[in-house]
Protein backbone atom coordinates (compact mmCIF):
# COMPACT_ATOMS: atom_id res chain seq x y z
CA UNK A 1 0.00 0.00 0.00
CA UNK A 2 1.18 3.51 -0.84
CA UNK A 3 0.85 5.94 2.02
CA UNK A 4 1.27 9.58 1.05
CA UNK A 5 0.99 12.66 3.23
CA UNK A 6 0.62 16.22 1.92
CA UNK A 7 1.54 19.22 4.04
CA UNK A 8 0.62 22.78 3.21
CA UNK A 9 -1.22 25.79 4.44
CA UNK A 10 -4.93 26.50 4.30
CA UNK A 11 -5.54 28.17 0.95
CA UNK A 12 -2.67 26.51 -0.94
CA UNK A 13 -4.85 23.90 -2.60
CA UNK A 14 -3.52 20.96 -0.61
CA UNK A 15 -6.87 19.24 -0.38
CA UNK A 16 -7.35 19.50 -4.12
CA UNK A 17 -3.78 18.30 -4.66
CA UNK A 18 -4.37 15.19 -2.57
CA UNK A 19 -7.64 14.54 -4.33
CA UNK A 20 -6.01 14.83 -7.74
CA UNK A 21 -3.48 12.21 -6.72
CA UNK A 22 -6.24 10.03 -5.26
CA UNK A 23 -8.23 10.29 -8.46
CA UNK A 24 -5.18 9.55 -10.59
CA UNK A 25 -4.50 6.39 -8.58
CA UNK A 26 -8.15 5.45 -8.89
CA UNK A 27 -8.00 5.87 -12.66
CA UNK A 28 -5.02 3.54 -12.65
CA UNK A 29 -7.24 0.91 -11.07
CA UNK A 30 -6.08 1.24 -7.47
CA UNK A 31 -8.28 1.14 -4.41
CA UNK A 32 -7.99 4.60 -2.92
CA UNK A 33 -8.68 6.51 0.25
CA UNK A 34 -7.98 10.22 0.48
CA UNK A 35 -8.86 12.73 3.14
CA UNK A 36 -7.91 16.15 4.38
CA UNK A 37 -7.27 16.87 8.03
CA UNK A 38 -8.03 20.32 9.26
CA UNK A 39 -9.24 21.69 12.49
CA UNK A 40 -10.45 25.10 13.44
CA UNK A 41 -7.47 26.83 11.82
CA UNK A 42 -7.98 28.97 8.78
CA UNK A 43 -6.21 30.26 5.70
CA UNK A 44 -2.46 30.20 6.17
CA UNK A 45 -2.53 27.70 9.03
CA UNK A 46 -0.75 24.37 8.59
CA UNK A 47 -3.00 21.59 7.29
CA UNK A 48 -2.37 18.18 5.89
CA UNK A 49 -4.06 15.62 3.71
CA UNK A 50 -3.35 12.01 2.98
CA UNK A 51 -3.78 9.45 0.26
CA UNK A 52 -3.67 5.68 0.50
CA UNK A 53 -3.60 3.50 -2.61
CA UNK A 54 -3.47 -0.26 -2.83
CA UNK A 55 -4.45 -3.14 -5.08
CA UNK A 56 -6.56 -4.48 -2.18
CA UNK A 57 -9.50 -2.83 -0.41
CA UNK A 58 -8.17 -0.42 2.22
CA UNK A 59 -9.20 -0.86 5.83
CA UNK A 60 -6.57 1.31 7.46
CA UNK A 61 -7.96 4.70 8.43
CA UNK A 62 -7.00 8.06 9.75
CA UNK A 63 -3.65 9.67 10.12
CA UNK A 64 -0.73 8.07 8.27
CA UNK A 65 1.91 7.42 10.90
CA UNK A 66 4.58 5.95 8.63
CA UNK A 67 4.45 7.68 5.27
CA UNK A 68 6.15 6.42 2.10
CA UNK A 69 6.04 9.86 0.55
CA UNK A 70 5.73 13.24 2.24
CA UNK A 71 4.87 16.16 -0.01
CA UNK A 72 5.59 19.60 1.43
CA UNK A 73 3.97 22.40 -0.53
CA UNK A 74 5.46 25.10 1.64
CA UNK A 75 8.96 24.60 3.01
CA UNK A 76 8.44 27.19 5.72
CA UNK A 77 6.26 24.59 7.44
CA UNK A 78 9.11 22.16 8.07
CA UNK A 79 10.40 23.92 11.18
CA UNK A 80 6.89 24.40 12.57
CA UNK A 81 6.40 21.65 15.19
CA UNK A 82 2.60 21.88 15.03
CA UNK A 83 2.68 21.03 11.33
CA UNK A 84 4.21 17.61 12.07
CA UNK A 85 5.81 17.41 8.64
CA UNK A 86 8.51 14.98 9.67
CA UNK A 87 6.35 12.75 11.88
CA UNK A 88 7.06 9.09 11.17
CA UNK A 89 9.62 9.85 8.44
CA UNK A 90 12.27 7.13 8.23
CA UNK A 91 14.99 5.99 5.83
CA UNK A 92 12.54 4.61 3.31
CA UNK A 93 10.42 7.75 3.18
CA UNK A 94 10.74 10.08 0.22
CA UNK A 95 10.49 13.78 0.97
CA UNK A 96 9.34 16.10 -1.81
CA UNK A 97 9.80 19.73 -0.85
CA UNK A 98 8.57 22.70 -2.80
CA UNK A 99 11.68 24.76 -2.20
CA UNK A 100 14.38 26.75 -3.96
CA UNK A 101 17.00 25.49 -1.60
CA UNK A 102 19.16 22.55 -2.59
CA UNK A 103 18.59 18.94 -1.69
CA UNK A 104 21.88 18.90 0.18
CA UNK A 105 20.87 21.89 2.28
CA UNK A 106 17.70 20.16 3.35
CA UNK A 107 19.41 16.86 4.07
CA UNK A 108 21.97 18.58 6.24
CA UNK A 109 19.51 20.86 7.93
CA UNK A 110 17.17 18.03 8.83
CA UNK A 111 19.85 15.43 9.36
CA UNK A 112 18.00 12.98 7.16
CA UNK A 113 19.13 9.81 5.42
CA UNK A 114 15.98 9.52 3.34
CA UNK A 115 15.61 10.57 -0.27
CA UNK A 116 14.85 14.26 -0.69
CA UNK A 117 13.63 15.97 -3.83
CA UNK A 118 12.99 19.64 -4.28
CA UNK A 119 10.82 21.59 -6.64
CA UNK A 120 12.53 24.87 -7.37
CA UNK A 121 9.70 27.11 -8.45
CA UNK A 122 9.61 29.89 -10.94
CA UNK A 123 8.95 33.33 -9.55
CA UNK A 124 5.53 33.52 -11.16
CA UNK A 125 4.54 30.28 -9.46
CA UNK A 126 5.51 31.59 -6.08
CA UNK A 127 3.26 34.55 -6.67
CA UNK A 128 0.39 32.27 -7.67
CA UNK A 129 -0.03 30.16 -4.58
CA UNK A 130 -3.05 28.38 -5.90
CA UNK A 131 -0.97 26.46 -8.42
CA UNK A 132 1.40 25.11 -5.83
CA UNK A 133 -0.79 22.09 -5.23
CA UNK A 134 -0.88 21.05 -8.86
CA UNK A 135 2.90 21.27 -9.17
CA UNK A 136 3.38 19.11 -6.13
CA UNK A 137 0.89 16.53 -7.31
CA UNK A 138 2.55 16.28 -10.71
CA UNK A 139 5.96 15.65 -9.18
CA UNK A 140 4.56 13.26 -6.58
CA UNK A 141 2.78 11.24 -9.24
CA UNK A 142 6.04 10.74 -11.12
CA UNK A 143 8.05 9.88 -8.01
CA UNK A 144 5.48 7.21 -7.21
CA UNK A 145 5.83 5.82 -10.70
CA UNK A 146 2.33 4.39 -10.46
CA UNK A 147 0.44 7.08 -12.33
CA UNK A 148 0.56 7.71 -16.07
CA UNK A 149 0.77 11.18 -17.55
CA UNK A 150 -2.64 10.73 -19.17
CA UNK A 151 -4.35 9.69 -15.98
CA UNK A 152 -2.75 12.56 -14.11
CA UNK A 153 -4.15 14.95 -16.70
CA UNK A 154 -7.56 13.29 -16.53
CA UNK A 155 -7.58 13.45 -12.74
CA UNK A 156 -6.81 17.16 -12.85
CA UNK A 157 -9.62 17.80 -15.32
CA UNK A 158 -12.03 15.76 -13.17
CA UNK A 159 -11.13 17.40 -9.89
CA UNK A 160 -11.11 20.94 -11.27
CA UNK A 161 -14.23 20.44 -13.37
CA UNK A 162 -16.03 23.33 -11.67
CA UNK A 163 -13.22 25.81 -12.34
CA UNK A 164 -12.73 28.14 -15.29
CA UNK A 165 -10.99 26.62 -18.32
CA UNK A 166 -7.98 28.91 -18.07
CA UNK A 167 -7.35 27.86 -14.49
CA UNK A 168 -7.66 24.19 -15.37
CA UNK A 169 -5.18 24.63 -18.21
CA UNK A 170 -2.74 26.50 -16.01
CA UNK A 171 -2.91 23.78 -13.33
CA UNK A 172 -2.53 21.13 -15.97
CA UNK A 173 0.53 22.80 -17.44
CA UNK A 174 2.19 23.19 -14.02
CA UNK A 175 1.43 19.61 -12.98
CA UNK A 176 2.60 18.04 -16.22
CA UNK A 177 5.74 20.14 -16.24
CA UNK A 178 6.56 18.94 -12.71
CA UNK A 179 5.71 15.38 -13.77
CA UNK A 180 8.16 15.61 -16.67
CA UNK A 181 10.88 17.20 -14.58
CA UNK A 182 10.86 14.17 -12.26
CA UNK A 183 11.22 11.70 -15.12
CA UNK A 184 14.57 10.26 -14.08
CA UNK A 185 13.34 9.68 -10.54
CA UNK A 186 10.20 7.79 -11.52
CA UNK A 187 9.41 5.05 -9.04
CA UNK A 188 11.63 6.38 -6.26
CA UNK A 189 8.89 5.80 -3.70
CA UNK A 190 8.77 2.38 -2.13
CA UNK A 191 6.09 0.87 0.09
CA UNK A 192 6.68 -0.60 3.49
CA UNK A 193 4.83 -3.25 5.45
CA UNK A 194 3.45 -1.96 8.72
CA UNK A 195 4.43 -3.35 12.08
CA UNK A 196 3.39 -6.98 12.46
CA UNK A 197 1.58 -8.46 15.42
CA UNK A 198 4.61 -10.60 16.25
CA UNK A 199 6.87 -7.89 17.59
CA UNK A 200 4.86 -4.81 18.29
CA UNK A 201 5.70 -2.18 20.83
CA UNK A 202 3.26 -2.33 23.71
CA UNK A 203 1.35 0.88 24.15
CA UNK A 204 2.30 2.58 27.44
CA UNK A 205 -1.25 2.84 28.73
CA UNK A 206 -1.79 4.48 32.06
CA UNK A 207 -4.67 4.57 34.49
CA UNK A 208 -5.92 8.10 34.43
CA UNK A 209 -5.91 9.34 38.04
CA UNK A 210 -8.68 11.32 39.63
CA UNK A 211 -7.84 14.99 39.55
CA UNK A 212 -9.65 17.78 41.28
CA UNK A 213 -12.00 19.75 39.05
CA UNK A 214 -9.78 22.76 39.75
CA UNK A 215 -7.33 21.00 37.44
CA UNK A 216 -9.47 18.77 35.34
CA UNK A 217 -12.06 21.24 34.05
CA UNK A 218 -11.30 22.80 30.66
CA UNK A 219 -10.50 26.23 32.09
CA UNK A 220 -7.62 28.56 31.29
CA UNK A 221 -6.53 30.48 34.37
CA UNK A 222 -4.70 33.14 32.45
CA UNK A 223 -5.47 36.15 30.35
CA UNK A 224 -4.48 36.66 26.75
CA UNK A 225 -1.96 33.83 26.75
CA UNK A 226 -2.87 33.15 23.13
CA UNK A 227 0.14 35.37 22.40
CA UNK A 228 2.19 32.23 22.95
CA UNK A 229 0.81 30.88 19.70
CA UNK A 230 3.16 31.97 16.92
CA UNK A 231 0.62 32.69 14.21
CA UNK A 232 3.36 34.57 12.40
CA UNK A 233 4.29 31.16 11.01
CA UNK A 234 1.14 31.25 8.88
CA UNK A 235 2.59 34.14 6.88
CA UNK A 236 3.73 33.74 3.29
CA UNK A 237 3.93 37.49 2.62
CA UNK A 238 5.48 39.90 5.07
CA UNK A 239 4.44 43.55 5.41
CA UNK A 240 7.53 45.72 5.78
CA UNK A 241 7.25 49.34 6.86
CA UNK A 242 9.40 51.89 5.06
CA UNK A 243 9.90 54.32 7.92
CA UNK A 244 11.16 56.98 5.53
CA UNK A 245 7.73 57.08 3.95
CA UNK A 246 5.63 56.46 7.06
CA UNK A 247 3.87 59.76 7.79
CA UNK A 248 3.31 58.79 11.42
CA UNK A 249 -0.42 59.01 11.16
CA UNK A 250 -0.22 56.74 14.22
CA UNK A 251 -3.42 54.83 13.78
CA UNK A 252 -4.39 53.51 10.34
CA UNK A 253 -2.29 50.34 10.11
CA UNK A 254 -2.63 49.62 13.79
CA UNK A 255 -6.39 50.11 13.95
CA UNK A 256 -7.21 48.03 10.91
CA UNK A 257 -4.84 45.14 11.72
CA UNK A 258 -7.33 42.32 12.42
CA UNK A 259 -4.82 40.57 14.66
CA UNK A 260 -3.81 43.58 16.70
CA UNK A 261 -0.25 42.83 15.64
CA UNK A 262 0.85 46.41 15.01
CA UNK A 263 1.61 48.58 17.97
CA UNK A 264 2.44 52.24 17.79
CA UNK A 265 5.13 53.69 20.00
CA UNK A 266 5.51 57.43 19.86
CA UNK A 267 3.69 57.62 16.56
CA UNK A 268 5.86 54.93 15.03
CA UNK A 269 4.19 51.68 14.07
CA UNK A 270 5.93 48.40 14.71
CA UNK A 271 4.78 45.07 13.32
CA UNK A 272 4.81 42.05 15.61
CA UNK A 273 6.08 39.41 13.19
CA UNK A 274 5.53 36.64 15.72
CA UNK A 275 1.84 37.14 15.21
CA UNK A 276 1.34 38.92 11.88
CA UNK A 277 -0.47 36.35 9.67
CA UNK A 278 0.34 38.19 6.49
CA UNK A 279 -3.13 39.33 5.49
CA UNK A 280 -1.73 42.59 3.98
CA UNK A 281 -4.60 44.77 5.20
CA UNK A 282 -2.00 47.29 6.44
CA UNK A 283 -0.30 47.33 3.05
CA UNK A 284 -3.55 48.24 1.34
CA UNK A 285 -4.74 50.73 3.96
CA UNK A 286 -1.53 52.71 4.63
CA UNK A 287 -2.28 56.24 3.37
CA UNK A 288 1.25 57.08 2.11
CA UNK A 289 1.77 53.49 0.83
CA UNK A 290 4.68 53.08 3.20
CA UNK A 291 4.15 49.34 3.78
CA UNK A 292 5.44 46.89 1.25
CA UNK A 293 4.57 43.22 0.79
CA UNK A 294 7.70 41.10 0.64
CA UNK A 295 7.61 37.32 0.13
CA UNK A 296 8.32 35.81 3.53
CA UNK A 297 11.06 33.64 2.16
CA UNK A 298 12.90 36.61 0.64
CA UNK A 299 12.51 38.49 3.88
CA UNK A 300 13.92 35.59 5.86
CA UNK A 301 16.93 35.34 3.56
CA UNK A 302 17.55 39.05 4.02
CA UNK A 303 17.28 38.61 7.76
CA UNK A 304 19.82 35.78 7.64
CA UNK A 305 22.25 37.81 5.56
CA UNK A 306 21.95 40.75 7.86
CA UNK A 307 22.45 38.46 10.82
CA UNK A 308 25.61 37.01 9.23
CA UNK A 309 27.07 40.37 8.32
CA UNK A 310 26.43 42.01 11.66
Amino acid sequence: MYRIRFHGRGGQGMITASRILGSAFFLEGYEVQDAPRYGAERRGAPIFAYVRADDQPIYERGVIAQPDLVVVADDSLIPVPAAGVLAGVDDHTVLLINSDESIETWKQRLNLCCKVFTLPAQAEERAELRFMGATCTGAAARLLGAVSRDNLARAIRDELAEMADAIVEKNLAMALDAYDRMQQYAGSVTTKTQTGAGDYRKPAWIDLPFEDARISAPDIHASANSTEVRTGLWRTLRPVIDYERCNQCWWVCSTFCPDGAIKVIERTPEIDYDHCKGCMVCVVQCPPHAIEAVPEQTAQLQDAEQGASS
Binding site: P203, A204, W205, I206, D207, L208, P209, E211, D212, R214, I215, D219, I220, H221, A222, N225, E228
Partner: peptide, 28 residues
Protein backbone atom coordinates in the same frame (compact mmCIF):
# COMPACT_ATOMS: atom_id res chain seq x y z
CA UNK B 1 -9.16 3.82 28.70
CA UNK B 2 -6.82 3.88 25.72
CA UNK B 3 -4.58 6.67 26.92
CA UNK B 4 -0.80 6.64 27.04
CA UNK B 5 1.92 8.02 29.24
CA UNK B 6 3.03 10.21 26.34
CA UNK B 7 -0.48 11.66 26.04
CA UNK B 8 -0.47 12.42 29.75
CA UNK B 9 2.83 14.26 29.37
CA UNK B 10 1.37 16.30 26.51
CA UNK B 11 -1.64 17.03 28.70
CA UNK B 12 0.65 18.31 31.44
CA UNK B 13 2.21 20.73 28.99
CA UNK B 14 -1.22 22.00 28.01
CA UNK B 15 -2.19 22.38 31.65
CA UNK B 16 0.95 24.33 32.31
CA UNK B 17 0.11 26.66 29.44
CA UNK B 18 -3.40 27.02 30.86
CA UNK B 19 -1.80 28.11 34.16
CA UNK B 20 -3.37 25.34 36.16
CA UNK B 21 -1.87 25.81 39.60
CA UNK B 22 1.43 23.98 39.97
CA UNK B 23 0.67 23.08 43.55
CA UNK B 24 -2.54 21.48 42.52
CA UNK B 25 -0.72 19.47 39.91
CA UNK B 26 1.95 18.33 42.30
CA UNK B 27 -0.45 17.35 45.03
CA UNK B 28 -2.85 15.49 42.83
Amino acid sequence: LLYTEQEMREMRKLQAAASVERNELNNS
